[in-house]
Each structure stands twice: as structure tokens, then as C-alpha cells.
Design a protein around this nucleic acid. Structure first.
Length: 553
RNA sequence: UGGGUUAUGGUGUAAUGGUAACACAACAGAUUUUGAUUCUGUCUUUCUAGGUUCGAAUCCUAGUAACCCAACCA
């Protein structure tokens, strides 16, 4: 009651249904086809359906819409279950449309007996040409007037395997002149002599979406069947089936699917990215798949927050990728361990520091005291970030440059005295002197500097590979551009750094550990990482006011 | 004989006839041993034209634009 947040349109419907007594409790479902991996668009649907169940004390089923055996595989079933669980949701029942094949077959027989379905011998082409167009009414098939007995016999023979693929179909008898193309005698069953991932070879006829989905909802007593906008034209048929079959009246509601800038969101396109090698796999960290995002280091919490923030409505949308990044950073900032890692190393020598000496300095692990501290070794030679040094300081430059002073995080203030270059004219060493009285936590100097930089001790550092990811596409909406969407792929979306140095403490992490490399971004261990060779993914950068400053000039 | 759906700042989402608000983005500034975080502030909105009303984002009329529908896919 204290929650003032306004309801989305589906919540309004549910509250009205609960209040009127239409339902005592609600039952929703998340109904993926197991023909690919789940992506962030599915996450919106998952959060919606499971969220509604949770919010209103109802339940949510996970139902696999597995009515097309040639596209579906157990591998996908497994990944979908893993992804839903990872997102933090528990389903009431794990169900399959294929569980209902027998019941669905009986429904079809019922329809035939009622004179509302018939077997058609027409080819796919003939059916298409008789269908008409949106502006031209269709025409009846010659088989439309078959007797009920004949239809019953033919359908039984279809089931028995008497016919080859495509030889016959079962159609609903509705209205070939309907303005809704889906009502022009839609196909109910087609013949496919194919192996099904669950029913094996038990069936050679398979129900179409329109004869499986709504009926499955009804069998399960789903109260609110939520799908995306493109199914609006199917709703008339959905209702027709329930009416004619006289079964539980589930109701379909549609919302707008998620679109996000700089990525694509269709399984077909994502599949192409994988099969054509534009990315490595479905869980490539650049992919908008749940598994890709998980591997990249996204937290389930951040994805849930994102889905909550984008809302649920019925108009087309294009969400800024930056909103997702905002939700990610907001969550990671609360929990990521603060560590130091140098991605583009440049050697810094503290000329007045004793040779061979090591100090154990203390550095904080997290955003607040509760995270405690750890020891970070310090010595005469350090790796620092190459981009933290300029031969000639720019305006507003707070970092290293000849004559400039900076603080080494958790260590000392140092002053840059000079640098050397290699034979190619590339800077290879920076020479600095440190101020012993500026030791972190014990600073008695009263000095203050504008810049603080991260570092790792050369003799103590651990080598690591770091993978940096950029957006996968160069344009906001690749699907809407002229030509093939793949022309807009960002060829520089993956940058592999093989010579990074990180602090020793990173040897003890797991893939579940979230790190903030100070000043560089949020990172996590990749699944390919090993003790012998650490591999990190950059989940997301930190916001960077300096790079904006640079771009301005 | 076409039908359906949707229009609110740069992007999303609210406001259910009564002060157009919240978040992201952008832009300024303060704090900072992360140019991060945090904090403060600025910026821009009801598709168009009529109408009803004391009062319209909301109701009415007529337009306009975008998206969806003619797979033996889901």
C-alpha cells in the first residue's frame, strides 16, 4: 500500500480480475520454443511473467513450445532452464507442449466432428494462392466440403503415417474471406516424419502454433497468457479455438517486445552471428544472450532492475544501451572488489627507493569498510598505465608528466623527474622520486595532488589476458538499416590484451567474483581462465569524464 | 475488403477531465587517495487540425505517421 509506483496495463487487468472475483489466483507462463538461446528480450518476458506471479501470489509455469521437431533440441531446453534459474526465478511446473500431443489430437478430432476442421490435399503453393491477400478475399479449397466421416478417416491415416510430408494438412474451417488472414482456414496439423527431441518417432503429425499454444494455456488453466505484439492477429483465432473446443478460457494479452540500441534481438539474426563466425558462440560476451551477458559479468540483479525500469507497454520502443549499463554499474558498484590491474603497462622506476625492498601496503577491498583491507606489495619498479603518462602535460591533465606529481593509490606521492625512450622513440621508462612522508594512511606532508593512479609491483605482478568488448554494431538499429544487418557489424568489438599485469590477489577469484579494476572498469574471470593463465572479461567501463574532456578538444 | 495496433522531452515510462512527473542520456558545479561513487543544479515533452468543457495528454470528429498480418515457423 505504501508503494506508490503506478501499475502497468497488465497489472491493472490482473488487479481488476482479482477484485471482481473473476480469478482467485493467477497463473502465468513463460513459453519459449527450444530452438535457440534466450536473450535480453526474453529476460523482459521472464521478469514480467514470473514477476506477476510473485507480485500477486500466483504461480508461473515454464513451458517449452516444442511443436516443430526439426528446429528444437534438448541442448536449448537445458540452456533455457539454466538461464531462467540464473535470473532468479523458480517455475511452478516444467511443461512441454509435446506433453499434450495426445490431448491436442483429440481436440482436433473434436473439431472435425463439429464440422469445423477438414483435411486438405492442396500443396503449400495452392493453399497460399487460394488464401488471397490482405485486400483480396481468399477462396475455398476443393476439399473444404469433405464429409465429417471422410475427414475423420483421413486424419487418422495422417496420424498413422500413411502420407508423406506435405501431402495433406488439417485445417480449421472458418472464413476464407476474413479480413484477418489468420482466420482464413488456418492450418492446424502438418505431416513431418521427423524425430522429436522428446516424443521421438511416436508422432508424424505435429500441431501448428495456433493449435498448440492456446490449448496448452487452457490445459494448464493459465489465466493471463502474455505474449508480444506480433501475436495480436492470432488472438481472434486463440479465442475461436477456446470457444469451439469449449475449454478453459485463458486470455491473451500483448505487450511490446524489447529493442535495444547497437544490437539485434531476433533469434534468426543471433544464430547467423554464431554460424557465420562473427562471434565465437551463443555465449560470446558480446552477444545480447543471457548466457553471453552472464559470461561477460552481468549480474542477474542488474538485468532484473533493467527490466523493471524499462516498463511494460504496447508501443514500439528502442531502449538506450546506456540504461542497461547504468543498471549494471549501479549494482556492481555496490559489491565489486576493488583491485589494481594495468592493461597497457609502462615501467615506472622510483629512483630514490631502495633496491630490493618490498613494503606491504594496505588497500581497501570495497566501497565501504565492511569489505576490509588487503596487503598490496610495493617496490622500486612498478607497472603503470601507459595512458597515465604524457610527455607534455595537456590542459587539465592530473596525471604523470615531467615535473608533475601524482599519488600512487594506497602508496606514496611521486614526482616525475624524467623518462627514457627505446630505439623506436617509444617511451619505455618513467623515472620518479617518491616522498616517504606521504605514505598512504600516514601522510604527514600536508601535500595534495589532483591525480591518483593505479599500479602493480613488477616483481609481484601476475600476468593476465584481458578481453575488452565494445558494442557489436556501429549503428543504433542495424535491423532497420538498408541492406544486410551484418554490414553494420563493428569489426573492433573485441580487443584482446595479452600482456596485462594484475595484482597477486586475483589468483584466488572464481568466475562469480566481480572486480573493479580501479579506474579501468568492472571485470570478471572468463570461463576459459586458468590458474596458469588468467583471462578477464571487461564487463563494462567506468564512466569516464576525462575521455569526454579529451573529445571536446 | 483490407484489417489490426500505437502516437507524451534525445530514450523509456507515468499522470485514468484538475499544477505534465520519474528514470536514463546530455550539460554545469561541489566533494573525492578511482577524472569512479556521492551530492547539487540545468536542459528539453503531450502527432496535426478542428470541437466539447470553467478546465483536455486524457473525451468527440477528421487527418497524418510508424509498426504488425498473406511460413506446412513460433
Amino acid at each position: 500500500m505504501s508503494e506508490e509506483k503506478s501499475l502497468n496495463f497488465i497489472e491493472e487487468i490482473i488487479e481488476a480480475d482479482l477484485e471482481s472475483g473473476k480469478y482467485k489466483t493467477i497463473l502465468t507462463r513463460f513459453p519459449p520454443e527450444p530452438n535457440g538461446y534466450l536473450h535480453i528480450g526474453h529476460a523482459k518476458s521472464i521478469c514480467l511473467n514470473f514477476g506477476l506471479g510473485l507480485k500477486y501470489g500466483g504461480k508461473t509455469n515454464l513451458r517449452f513450445d516444442d511443436t516443430n521437431p526439426v528446429k528444437e533440441e534438448t541442448e536449448y531446453v537445458d540452456s533455457i532452464k539454466e538461464d531462467v534459474q540464473w535470473l532468479g526465478f523458480n517455475w511452478e511446473k516444467e511443461l512441454y507442449a509435446s506433453d499434450y500431443f495426445e490431448q491436442l489430437y483429440l481436440f482436433a478430432v473434436d473439431l472435425i466432428k463439429k464440422g469445423l476442421a477438414y483435411v486438405d490435399d492442396s500443396s503449400a503453393e495452392e493453399i497460399a494462392s487460394l488464401k488471397g491477400t490482405p485486400t483480396v478475399p481468399g477462396m475455398d479449397s476443393a476439399n473444404r466440403s469433405r464429409t465429417i466421416d471422410e475427414n475423420l478417416q483421413l486424419f487418422a491415416q495422417m496420424k498413422a503415417g500413411k502420407y508423406a510430408d506435405g501431402e495433406k494438412v488439417l485445417r480449421a474451417k472458418i472464413d476464407m474471406a476474413s479480413p484477418n488472414m489468420h482466420m482464413r482456414d488456418p492450418l492446424l496439423y502438418r505431416i513431418k516424419h521427423a524425430h522429436h527431441h522428446r516424443t521421438g518417432d511416436a508422432w508424424c503429425i505435429y500441431p501448428m502454433y495456433d493449435f498448440a499454444h492456446g490449448q496448452s494455456d487452457s490445459i494448464e488453466n493459465i489465466t493471463h497468457s502474455i505474449c508480444t505484439l506480433e501475436f495480436i492477429p492470432h488472438r481472434e483465432l486463440y479465442d475461436w479455438m477456446i470457444d469451439k473446443l469449449e475449454i478453459f478460457p485463458s486470455q491473451q494479452y500483448e505487450f511490446a517486445r524489447l529493442n535495444m540500441t547497437y544490437t539485434v534481438m531476433s533469434k534468426r539474426k543471433l544464430l547467423q552471428l554464431v554460424t557465420e563466425g562473427h562471434v565465437q558462440s551463443w555465449d560470446d560476451p558480446r552477444m545480447p544472450t543471457i548466457s553471453g551477458m552472464r559470461r561477460r559479468g552481468f549480474t542477474a540483479e542488474s538485468i532484473r532492475t533493467f527490466c523493471d525500469k524499462i516498463g511494460v507497454a504496447r508501443r514500439e520502443n528502442m531502449i538506450d544501451f546506456s540504461l542497461l549499463e547504468f543498471c549494471l554499474r549501479e549494482d556492481l558498484n555496490k559489491s565489486a572488489l576493488r583491485v589494481m590491474g594495468v592493461l597497457d603497462p609502462l615501467k615506472l622506476i622510483i629512483t630514490n627507493y631502495p633496491d630490493g625492498q618490498t613494503e606491504e601496503l594496505v588497500s581497501e577491498n570495497g566501497p565501504d569498510e565492511a569489505y576490509g583491507t588487503r596487503i598490496v606489495p610495493f617496490s622500486k619498479e612498478l607497472w603503470v598505465e601507459r595512458e597515465d603518462f604524457m610527455e607534455e602535460a595537456a590542459k587539465k591533465w592530473f596525471r604523470l608528466a615531467p615535473g608533475a606529481a601524482v599519488r600512487l593509490k594506497s602508496a606514496y606521492i611521486i614526482k616525475c623527474d624524467g623518462f627514457t625512450k627505446d630505439a623506436n622513440g617509444i617511451v619505455n621508462e618513467i623515472h620518479c622520486s617518491y616522498l616517504p612522508e606521504t605514505k598512504s594512511g600516514h601522510d604527514t606532508s600536508g601535500m595534495s595532488v589532483k591525480g591518483t593512479i593505479h599500479w602493480v609491483s613488477v616483481t609481484h605482478a601476475v600476468p593476465a589476458e584481458v578481453r575488452l568488448y565494445e558494442r557489436l554494431f556501429k549503428v543504433e538499429n542495424p535491423a532497420a538499416e538498408d541492406g544486410d544487418f551484418k554490414e553494420y557489424i563493428n569489426e573492433d568489438s573485441l580487443k584482446i590484451i595479452s600482456n596485462a599485469w594484475v595484482e597477486h590477489s586475483l589468483l584466488s577469484g572464481t568466475t562469480a567474483t566481480r572486480y573493479q579494476f580501479l579506474r579501468k572498469g568492472y571485470f570478471c574471470l572468463d570461463k576459459e581462465s586458468a590458474a596458469s593463465k588468467l583471462v578477464f572479461n571487461r564487463t563494462v567501463t567506468l564512466k569516464d569524464a576525462w575521455s569526454k574532456e579529451v573529445k571536446k578538444h
